[in-house]
Structure formats: structure tokens, C-alpha cells
Amino acid sequence: MAAAAAAGAGPEMVRGQVFDVGPRYTNLSYIGEGAYGMVCSAYDNVNKVRVAIKKISPFEHQTYCQRTLREIKILLRFRHENIIGINDIIRAPTIEQMKDVYIVQDLMETDLYKLLKTQHLSNDHICYFLYQILRGLKYIHSANVLHRDLKPSNLLLNTTCDLKICDFGLARVADPDHDHTGFLTEYVATRWYRAPEIMLNSKGYTKSIDIWSVGCILAEMLSNRPIFPGKHYLDQLNHILGILGSPSQEDLNCIINLKARNYLLSLPHKNKVPWNRLFPNADSKALDLLDKMLTFNPHKRIEVEQALAHPYLEQYYDPSDEPIAEAPFKFDMELDDLPKEKLKELIFEETARFQPGYRS
């Protein structure tokens, strides 16, 4: 834990890192770190609560700039109880001085990944967590956004079992017609939660990839272990087919990539493993919904509104309290091709509203 900075004593240090967030945020305490930044909790002297502050230093890398800009653009436009918001952003007053960006968010005690390492969940908890994931996802999908990296560590939890989806750095506007060349190379989302079509096709992607990830998360809540822990690309596919069985001819016809289709045709026939054999203690309604989410063919996979209306979630289902976005989200430009200098300018502009004396 960093010592509390005395008023006016300059930035606090946390594990050798400068955290320049005073005077409003003090009493910093280390939480963890990701690929390009550290997260601390801090005391907000204005709202009198502890908050989470993520320090991001992305400006050396085009990919990190892209992810940072995506996350900020999306989260500043989203407003939903099951999606983490941005409360404040701290950065230098000029673009030349801006080396880091500090993002202030609600402090959540833990995440689903940490929880599943230590606790076996009751059916009631599984049901409530799944409902909140789908409630947040309904809003995301209504904005025409794909999260693309749903996994237990991106689901934040607090002691009252509130759940918030975080990390929109890989999110995209849904565009089933656009052929994202190089899709697989830039697709760094965790393999275990990846839909089979991501490994088999490169053309376009749809909201059904997020539903697949939610199915993987439900299976993990039922058993405290990942359902498809593939060691590499082909191993991942083999794990999936080992449980779902061989795809039907109709399902194979959806695979545009001939090499991928021929690979699947070359494999020995596998039978589907019954879900109640894998999860003998699970609620039968939970397994019915799991089956509809972990469907090989993305066109037959359940959609988020149908999933919310499934009998497993009937005690929570309330369409009048499951809000959607006001308007579909649009990125003005494809960020993939922009140089990091341009992305830095866009991050600077996007964060201006939090600067003292800002006038829109």
C-alpha cells in the first residue's frame, strides 16, 4: 500500500510507478496490472468513496492506442447498470505532455475469474450472474457493438453480487458484411471463450460470437473449470467437437473457408456428449439454455433477447427493466489503419471533457 500523499506533496508512487492523480484522489492501494497499465484503488475526496484507477501508458504502440481509444469512446457513450462506466479521466493539459491516461471507475471487490478459483456457486448465484451478463449484453448488442472478449476476468463483482462487464478494448461495431482481413492475426481474445466460426472463417462476425462466450462462462460457473481449455488453435476446435459432436452437413455448409471445411470433413465422426453427463448436478433449465448458447452453427445460436426470456431466468426476466441503447454506435473511421500519432490526438480530444474549465 502506498503511503497517503500529504496535501501538495506531488504524485504518489505505487510499486515504483508514478500515479499522478492528486489532489482529488489519494490513499492509493495496488490492485493489479494488465498488459499496459496498473490498477489501484484510491480515495475520492470529492465523492467520499474509494474508486478504481487504471493507469494506461499506450502511446508507444499502435495496438494499445487503438484499444484505449475504443474503450474510452464506447464506455463514455454507454450507460447501463451492468456495464462499468467511466467516472473521470485524468491526463496532462497538453498533448505533448500526455504520456499516461488515468481512467477512474467504480471500485468492484472482485471478478468472476477470482471468485470461481475459490468458491463453488449455488444455482441461485449462477442464475443471477447469468441474468446480469445477458442484461448488459442486450444493451451492448442493441448499440450494434460486439464485445468480443467476454470471459470471467472481464466480469466485475461486488459483495452485493452486482455484476458489471468491463474491458471493451477489443470491441467492434457489428459488421457481418465487412471482410476484416487479418482478423485472426489481430484477434487476441482469450482462445477458450472463442466461437468456432472465428477459427473457421475470417469473413465478418456477428453478435452470436458473444453468446458463445457467455455459454462458455455459464459452463464454467457450473463446474469451476473452463469447458474448452484448448492449448492452441486446432486443439481448441477438437475440444469443442469432442463435446458438441461432429457438425451436420448443414452446419458445414455455413463454413465459407474450404480449407477449414475440408479439415472438419477429414475428422472421424464424434457423438455429442449429453450435458447432464458433463454437469450431473446442474439445473435442467440451465443445461437447456447452455445447449442453445453453445450451438456450433452461429445462425442457430440463441440471441440475447431470447436467452433473457428463457425459463431458467424467469424469476428475473423483465423486458421493461432491460434497457437498450438510445442509438446504434458508430465509429467515424476504422481505427485499425491509423498511425499511433493520430490515435493519440483522438484520445486527447475524447478525454477533453474531463479537463478543468472544459467548454463543449
Score class of each variant (00 low, 15 high):
residue 126 I to C: 05
residue 189 A to L: 12
residue 73 K to I: 14
residue 297 N to C: 06
residue 15 R to A: 13
residue 19 F to D: 03
residue 138 K to G: 12
residue 167 D to Y: 14
residue 288 D to M: 02
residue 344 K to M: 15
residue 152 P to K: 02
residue 11 P to D: 09
residue 125 H to I: 07
residue 87 N to Q: 02
residue 11 P to Q: 14
residue 252 L to I: 09
residue 295 T to M: 04
residue 97 Q to A: 04
residue 147 H to M: 02
residue 248 S to V: 08
residue 12 E to A: 11
residue 265 L to W: 01
residue 234 L to Q: 14
residue 237 L to E: 08
residue 219 A to G: 10
residue 211 I to R: 06
residue 53 I to S: 13
residue 209 I to D: 03
residue 158 N to C: 10
residue 270 K to W: 01
residue 251 D to I: 01
residue 17 Q to K: 13
residue 180 H to Q: 14
residue 84 I to S: 07
residue 78 F to P: 02
residue 186 E to P: 08
residue 309 A to Y: 02
residue 108 M to H: 00
residue 150 L to D: 06
residue 133 I to C: 03
residue 342 K to I: 15
residue 229 P to W: 02
residue 335 L to D: 06
residue 97 Q to D: 13
residue 33 E to L: 00
residue 7 A to I: 13
residue 110 T to D: 09
residue 176 P to C: 11
residue 5 A to W: 07
residue 137 L to M: 10
residue 149 D to R: 08
residue 208 S to V: 10
residue 83 I to Q: 02
residue 241 L to A: 04
residue 265 L to H: 03
residue 15 R to T: 11
residue 289 L to I: 08
residue 327 A to H: 04
residue 28 L to I: 13
residue 200 L to S: 13
residue 39 V to N: 10
residue 208 S to G: 04
residue 32 G to N: 04
residue 149 D to A: 15
residue 57 S to A: 12
residue 267 L to K: 03
residue 170 L to E: 04
residue 176 P to G: 11
residue 145 V to P: 11
residue 132 Q to C: 00
residue 209 I to N: 13
residue 271 N to C: 05
residue 351 T to G: 10
residue 245 G to Q: 10
residue 228 F to N: 08
residue 334 E to P: 10
residue 74 I to G: 08
residue 331 F to Y: 15
residue 264 L to N: 02
residue 331 F to I: 15
residue 49 V to T: 11
residue 207 K to H: 08
residue 51 V to Y: 12
residue 15 R to E: 05
residue 330 K to T: 00
residue 209 I to Y: 06
residue 110 T to M: 09
residue 188 V to H: 02
residue 326 E to C: 03
residue 204 G to K: 08
residue 228 F to R: 01
residue 58 P to K: 15
residue 172 R to C: 02
residue 10 G to P: 06
residue 253 N to H: 11
residue 241 L to T: 07
residue 89 I to T: 10
residue 128 Y to L: 06
residue 20 D to Y: 15
residue 221 M to E: 05
residue 239 H to F: 11
residue 17 Q to R: 13
residue 74 I to Q: 10
residue 73 K to M: 13
residue 171 A to E: 03
residue 304 V to N: 09
residue 342 K to A: 08
residue 73 K to G: 08
residue 313 L to H: 05
residue 139 Y to M: 10
residue 323 P to S: 09
residue 62 Q to V: 09
residue 137 L to G: 04
residue 343 L to F: 09
residue 53 I to H: 01
residue 129 F to Q: 06
residue 134 L to A: 07
residue 44 D to E: 15
residue 237 L to V: 00
residue 252 L to P: 12
residue 47 N to A: 12
residue 127 C to G: 09
residue 217 I to M: 09
residue 126 I to Y: 03
residue 290 L to T: 02
residue 52 A to H: 04
residue 199 M to N: 05
residue 80 H to F: 04
residue 96 E to S: 04
residue 26 T to H: 05
residue 45 N to S: 13
residue 209 I to K: 08
residue 220 E to R: 03
residue 88 D to M: 01
residue 193 Y to I: 08
residue 262 N to I: 15
residue 37 G to I: 07
residue 131 Y to H: 01
residue 215 G to E: 12
residue 129 F to H: 04
residue 81 E to S: 14
residue 345 E to S: 11
residue 246 S to W: 01
residue 194 R to A: 07
residue 319 P to I: 01
residue 37 G to C: 15
residue 97 Q to I: 05
residue 341 E to D: 14
residue 103 I to L: 06
residue 222 L to H: 06
residue 262 N to L: 10
residue 245 G to N: 01
residue 130 L to A: 07
residue 202 S to C: 13
residue 129 F to T: 02
residue 78 F to E: 01
residue 36 Y to N: 15
residue 9 A to E: 12
residue 158 N to F: 04
residue 265 L to T: 06
residue 265 L to E: 04
residue 47 N to S: 13
residue 305 E to Q: 03
residue 315 Q to Y: 01
residue 305 E to I: 05
residue 290 L to M: 11
residue 263 Y to I: 07
residue 233 Y to C: 06
residue 190 T to V: 05
residue 105 Q to Y: 15
residue 207 K to M: 15
residue 40 C to N: 10
residue 67 R to P: 09
residue 318 D to Y: 13
residue 271 N to G: 08
residue 122 S to N: 11
residue 58 P to C: 12
residue 11 P to Y: 02
residue 287 L to Y: 13
residue 344 K to L: 07
residue 327 A to E: 07
residue 116 L to H: 03
residue 103 I to S: 11
residue 217 I to E: 08
residue 8 G to T: 12
residue 325 A to Y: 01
residue 53 I to N: 13
residue 70 R to M: 02
residue 166 C to W: 02
residue 78 F to Y: 15
residue 121 L to W: 02
residue 359 R to W: 15
residue 257 N to T: 14
residue 40 C to F: 14
residue 205 Y to C: 03
residue 294 L to R: 00
residue 154 N to W: 03
residue 206 T to Y: 12
residue 174 A to V: 14
residue 250 E to Q: 03
residue 180 H to A: 05
residue 274 P to D: 07
residue 94 T to R: 09
residue 292 K to I: 11
residue 113 Y to W: 02
residue 251 D to N: 11
residue 3 A to K: 08
residue 289 L to Q: 14
residue 331 F to E: 08
residue 178 H to R: 12
residue 164 K to A: 05
residue 349 E to T: 02
residue 55 K to M: 08
residue 14 V to H: 11
residue 354 F to K: 07
residue 153 S to T: 02
residue 109 E to H: 01
residue 338 L to G: 08
residue 43 Y to F: 14
residue 349 E to C: 02
residue 279 F to Y: 13
residue 224 N to I: 15
residue 51 V to H: 14
residue 3 A to Y: 07
residue 296 F to V: 12
residue 314 E to T: 06
residue 202 S to A: 10
residue 341 E to S: 11
residue 72 I to V: 03
residue 266 S to P: 01
residue 169 G to L: 00
residue 63 T to C: 12
residue 224 N to L: 07
residue 236 Q to H: 13
residue 282 A to M: 05
residue 5 A to S: 13
residue 339 P to C: 02
residue 345 E to C: 03
residue 20 D to R: 05
residue 331 F to A: 01
residue 299 H to I: 11
residue 252 L to R: 10
residue 199 M to P: 04
residue 202 S to E: 09
residue 141 H to I: 07
residue 60 E to T: 11
residue 315 Q to H: 12
residue 298 P to T: 14
residue 163 L to W: 03
residue 52 A to E: 02
residue 52 A to I: 12
residue 133 I to H: 04
residue 266 S to Q: 01
residue 358 Y to F: 14
residue 106 D to C: 03
residue 339 P to I: 08
residue 338 L to S: 08
residue 60 E to Q: 13
residue 136 G to H: 01
residue 272 K to Q: 10
residue 341 E to Y: 01
residue 289 L to P: 00
residue 32 G to L: 03
residue 156 L to P: 00
residue 162 D to Y: 13
residue 292 K to R: 09
residue 174 A to L: 02
residue 13 M to P: 15
residue 334 E to Q: 07
residue 302 I to N: 15
residue 112 L to N: 05
residue 48 K to Y: 10
residue 358 Y to L: 11
residue 357 G to C: 15
residue 162 D to M: 00
residue 65 C to F: 15
residue 314 E to N: 02
residue 172 R to H: 02
residue 286 A to K: 03
residue 282 A to G: 04
residue 113 Y to F: 14
residue 114 K to G: 10
residue 228 F to H: 00
residue 312 Y to D: 03
residue 147 H to A: 08
residue 168 F to C: 03
residue 57 S to W: 08
residue 228 F to I: 15
residue 3 A to I: 00
residue 346 L to S: 11
residue 158 N to D: 00
residue 138 K to R: 11
residue 187 Y to V: 05
residue 76 L to M: 12
residue 306 Q to R: 08
residue 103 I to A: 03
residue 277 R to A: 12
residue 245 G to V: 13
residue 34 G to Y: 00
residue 101 V to Y: 11
residue 254 C to G: 05
residue 353 R to Q: 11
residue 149 D to C: 01
residue 32 G to V: 13
residue 76 L to D: 00
residue 68 T to Y: 15
residue 264 L to I: 03
residue 129 F to S: 06
residue 318 D to S: 02
residue 283 D to F: 08
residue 148 R to K: 12
residue 83 I to Y: 00
residue 85 G to F: 12
residue 202 S to G: 11
residue 76 L to H: 02
residue 325 A to P: 02
residue 321 D to I: 03
residue 141 H to M: 10
residue 219 A to L: 05
residue 209 I to S: 10
residue 21 V to A: 06
residue 128 Y to T: 06
residue 183 F to N: 11
residue 327 A to K: 04
residue 107 L to E: 14
residue 75 L to C: 11
residue 266 S to I: 11
residue 207 K to G: 09
residue 10 G to N: 10
residue 6 A to K: 04
residue 238 N to C: 10
residue 320 S to R: 10
residue 16 G to W: 00
residue 41 S to C: 12
residue 13 M to D: 03
residue 88 D to Q: 01
residue 153 S to P: 03
residue 257 N to F: 12
residue 350 E to W: 00
residue 333 M to K: 15
residue 218 L to Q: 14
residue 131 Y to I: 03
residue 261 R to I: 08
residue 303 E to V: 13
residue 11 P to N: 09
residue 310 H to V: 03
residue 337 D to F: 06
residue 297 N to W: 01
residue 58 P to A: 15
residue 175 D to W: 04
residue 194 R to S: 15
residue 122 S to F: 06
residue 270 K to G: 08
residue 29 S to T: 05
residue 280 P to Y: 05
residue 133 I to R: 01
residue 333 M to G: 06
residue 321 D to M: 04
residue 173 V to Q: 11
residue 19 F to R: 03
residue 308 L to V: 10
residue 253 N to A: 09
residue 49 V to Q: 09
residue 193 Y to S: 04
residue 296 F to P: 01
residue 15 R to H: 10
residue 196 P to L: 07
residue 171 A to N: 06
residue 178 H to V: 10
residue 232 H to K: 02
residue 172 R to E: 07
residue 4 A to W: 10
residue 175 D to I: 09
residue 132 Q to R: 06
residue 25 Y to K: 04
residue 128 Y to K: 09
residue 240 I to C: 12
residue 97 Q to P: 14
residue 358 Y to S: 11
